[in-house]
Computed example of a mutant assay.
Amino acid sequence: MKRFFFACFLIVAGYTARSQSASPVPWTQAQLVEPSVLAAQLQLPISQRPVVIDVGPAGVISGARVAGPAGEKEGLGRLKKMLADLPREKPVIIYCGCCPFEHCPNVRPAFQTLLSMGFRNPRLLNLPRNLKADWIDRGFPLAPEE
């Protein structure tokens, strides 16, 4: 009998953990920006470019500001500081690229922060696999190495 209750507990605990880890997606399909579109926008004069912010562990896109991992308290704090003085109508594109979106610990809290701070044009760079496969391997602009 104890084994039966223990097995039921494990099933319920496993279901709860899975449902919490698959948190809802706060962006819409229309809010995704294709890499080729951002690469073209990076060729525009600086005043016409969107603000691009890296919310993950590696800042390699040309011109991107680096907040760091938004899944961590420090990175989310840096993101909020970066966003504080920006006009709310300014297009802001965030990206991580550490892993596929469904596993990424950074894009959801970062995008939710854009929404909660009232940004009217929040965007997420569409890197469904990762930064290497979806940006670097396609030859899009990289920041100069330091």
Rank of each mutant, 00 (worst) to 15 (best):
N106K: 06
A110F: 06
W135V: 02
D137A: 15
L115R: 15
N130P: 06
A133I: 11
V107E: 11
L127C: 02
D134G: 07
A133K: 14
P122I: 02
R120H: 04
R120E: 09
R123T: 00
A133F: 04
A110R: 09
M117C: 13
R108C: 02
P128M: 04
P105M: 09
W135T: 00
R108N: 01
N130R: 05
F119K: 01
P105N: 03
I136Q: 12
L131H: 06
K132I: 09
L115T: 08
F111I: 07
P122Y: 02
R120W: 00
M117E: 14
R120C: 03
L114H: 08
I136Y: 13
I136M: 10
M117K: 10
L124F: 03
P109I: 11
F111Y: 15
A110Q: 13
S116H: 15
P105D: 01
N126Y: 13
D137T: 02
L125C: 02
G118M: 09
D137Y: 10
L131G: 05
L115I: 08
L125W: 00
N106W: 07
W135I: 02
F111E: 14
V107F: 12
L125K: 04
I136E: 11
N126H: 15
F119H: 10
L131W: 08
A133E: 12
N130H: 01
P128R: 11
K132E: 13
D137P: 09
L127F: 09
F111Q: 11
P105Y: 04
Q112G: 10
L127W: 09
L131T: 06
K132D: 08
D137V: 05
F111A: 07
D137H: 13
N106D: 15
F111G: 12
A110G: 12
W135K: 00
N106C: 04
L124E: 04
P109T: 13
K132S: 12
A133R: 12
Q112Y: 08
L125E: 00
V107A: 08
N106Y: 05
R129V: 12
P105G: 00
L124C: 07
R108H: 06
R123G: 06
N126A: 15
R108W: 03
T113K: 08
M117I: 15
N121L: 07
R108D: 00
S116T: 14
N130V: 01
D137G: 05
G118Q: 11
A133L: 09
A110T: 06
K132F: 08
R120K: 13
F111P: 14
L124K: 10
K132G: 01
V107Y: 14
N126Q: 14
A133H: 11
P109E: 15
D137E: 15
Q112I: 03
R120M: 12
R129G: 03
R108P: 01
P128Y: 07
F119C: 01
P122D: 04
P122H: 03
P128G: 02
L125P: 00
L115M: 13
I136W: 11
F119A: 05
S116I: 08
Q112F: 00
L115F: 08
L115C: 07
N130A: 07
G118H: 08
T113P: 11
F111W: 15
P109M: 14
Q112R: 14
N126M: 10
N121S: 11
